[in-house]
């Protein structure tokens, strides 16, 4: 396959960026999108040019490192991560636009790499369960109803890639935050911190400068792990419940 790539190049956070055009040849339909970028980078290196910086790690669709907006869609045309997107989803001769996640809370570090530390700070604000550590507890000590376990697992699938923010017309992190809130809130282990968790995580989400939710539904469409839009509804319910229960200054 022969392709024309238009890729966002930006030297650092402060530098102005722009789209640069590259032609790549010899791409096999079985290559992943990242392997296709590797092919380009090998050539750029040989030619003495700076290779295109992009985030990647496991390349198995489970780590959430890859973060490419391909032809205006987070992770591209398939409902998966960019590393699991294969070139057979494109046609020979296509022109493909590759851009980084766009959000004020995700500043560009270089080219296609963005800083997603805002997500880490949201997790730090409440995305945990406080338990005494030590020897492993007896497995049956805390019974977990099957429905709660299923719900928790569905939300635990979130890999924190940030595609929801990239796809949202408002750059909102509601789907990410709600996945974490619902994951822990569904389990008995998460119950003691149920109210403070949702209030603190939403407050941190707002403080990071993410936009608000307008229920456009783009996040759930883009999510490679299929976190449903109803996750946001459930978090709204949790937030309203918590704000009635917890008096805060």
């Amino acid at each position: 396959m022969k392709l024309t790539l238009r890729i966002w190049r930006q030297h650092d956070t402060e530098a102005p960026g722009g789209m640069a055009t590259y032609d790549v040849d010899g791409i096999s339909p079985g290559m992943s999108f990242l392997e296709m970028l590797d092919t380009l980078n090998e050539r750029l290196t040989v030619e003495g040019e700076e290779p295109v910086a992009f985030d990647h790690d496991c390349r198995e669709g489970i780590c959430g490192a890859c973060s490419l907006v391909i032809n205006g869609e987070a992770h591209g045309p398939e409902r998966t991560t960019a590393c699991q997107l294969h070139m057979r989803s494109f046609r020979d001769g296509d022109t493909i636009d590759v851009e980084p996640w766009r959000a004020a809370a995700f500043p560009v570090v270089r080219d296609l790499v963005v800083d997603r530390a805002a997500f880490d700070r949201i997790i730090q604000s409440g995305g945990y369960v406080s338990v005494p550590t030590g020897s492993a507890p007896e497995a049956h000590a805390t019974p977990v109803p099957k429905a709660a376990a299923d719900s928790a697992f569905e939300h635990a699938e979130c890999i924190g890639c940030g595609a929801c923010v990239a796809a949202c017309p408002n750059g909102s992190a509601m789907l990410f935050t709600s996945a974490k809130v619902n994951h822990l809130g569904a389990l008995p282990q998460g119950a003691p911190e149920r109210e403070t968790r949702v209030l603190d995580m939403v407050a941190q989400m707002d403080a990071e400068g993410f936009g608000g939710c307008t229920l456009a539904g783009e996040c759930a469409t883009a999510c490679p792990k299929g976190i449903p839009l109803t996750s946001i509804t459930a978090m709204n319910r949790e937030w309203l419940r918590a704000s009635r229960k917890v008096p805060r200054s």
């Binding site: 238009r6 966002w8 789209m19 907006v69 032809n71 205006g72 869609e73 636009d97 851009e99 766009r102 959000a103 004020a104 809370a105 796809a167 017309p169 408002n170 750059g171 909102s172 400068g209 993410f210 936009g211 608000g212 307008t214 456009a216 539904g217 783009e218």
Partner: peptide, 17 residues
């Protein structure tokens, strides 16, 4: 707030929602 949250937009825009 929503408009501020994405100061640099996408070059490749799609009709969303």
């Amino acid at each position: 707030r929503d408009l501020r949250s994405r100061p640099v937009g996408y070059v490749h825009t799609k009709a969303r929602s």
